[in-house]
């Protein structure tokens, strides 16, 4: 099912394994989310995202694996604003990391440091490169 197609989603047995896997990997009980949207309204990066963080949460709840194709999971910078604001005590950043990991663990790298021009490598501080590698490559 394409993202945001508006079709009614039913949480069948088939969709459960994905939700359970995300729960396990993130350590967060995604079922607690009641879609208040606080995470999305506080998130500083929504301009660059295709799905709002709260939408990502809903898709995980429903077990929709296509959420892994979204840009959002790569845009989240783990700033933890959502963790501080969520009234249900969910660390949404952990969920985002679990989703990234599910993709990265299938021999996928989101970025390739080989492609950075030498001028950039000369200028960028180690702290930027190390964190980028840890977050966006497998």
């Amino acid at each position: 099912m394409p993202l945001g197609s508006g079709e009614t989603l039913r949480l069948g047995e088939k969709l459960k394994p994905f939700r359970e896997r995300v729960k396990e990997l993130s350590g967060e009980d995604v079922g607690l989310c009641y879609q208040c949207g606080a995470c999305s309204s506080g998130c500083p990066l929504t301009d660059e995202m295709d799905l709002l963080p709260s939408t990502v949460m809903r898709m995980v709840q429903l077990g929709v694996e296509e959420v892994l194709d979204s840009k959002t999971i790569w845009i989240c910078s783990s700033c933890f604003t959502c963790q501080v604001r969520c009234p249900r005590g969910i660390d949404v950043a952990n969920v985002m990391e679990a989703l990234r990991q599910l993709v990265l663990r299938r021999k996928y790298d989101r970025v390739s440091i080989d492609l950075l021009p030498p001028e950039e490598l000369r200028e960028l501080p180690q702290i930027a490169l190390v964190s980028c590698q840890r977050k966006l490559t497998g």
Partner: peptide
């Protein structure tokens, strides 16, 4: 930054 420039993978 000379090492990072030639061997950026050391940041991994």
């Amino acid at each position: 930054n000379v090492f990072v420039e030639h061997f950026p993978e050391i940041t991994r």
